[in-house]
Amino acid sequence: MKTDIILSGVGGQGILSIAAVIGEAALEEGLYMKQAEVHGMSQRGGDVQSNLRISDKPVASDLIPKGSADIIISLEPMESLRYLPYLKEYGWLVTNSRPFINIPNYPVLDKVNEELDKLPHKVILDVEAIAKELGSVRAANIVMLGAATPFIGIDYDKIEDGIRRIFGRKGDEIVTMNLNALKAGYEVAKQIQTT
């Protein structure tokens, strides 16, 4: 088992909270992992990414080589495209559809969507809208994690356990809300994966 994941987004969106749950689940499974993060200047609203590598054998490089990422998980549609050179030929791109516009020259969204359409394997969903329906916009990241779960190579219930462990100290209500968010994202992706 070996899964290479690129997480991307805009500084402040919280891609690292997604990585934290996956990491927790991987560690509990006894898997090896490495996760390179971005700290510092770009966290101020710049483009950010994290390389997350999980394997049943020791992982050598902290960075993912080009053309070998199994999944790109992105909280922002244009940002998901920035890392395409790293995606495997039949890799999955899982992205939020809602743009984060903090630059004056953000492209016309249709042009971004055209590029997303060209990819063979993708899940595109509005995680904020789904999270809002569930009652908490703050769970948007976990909706995203749910949508990526079918492709991570760790069982769904292990990811659920990861959420329980990470959010446990915040109380049952928060845990339940995040579990619902995970499920909502997961169901969207499952449907796309099987059709």
Binding site: R44, L84, P85
Partner: peptide
Amino acid sequence: VALALGKEVKSFYSVPEVVEQRPPALC
């Protein structure tokens, strides 16, 4: 490092032209 070792580095997709730079900014 792969290139220095004479190995091939292959991408299946390139960064589309539509992608713009997103520099950091004051909050």
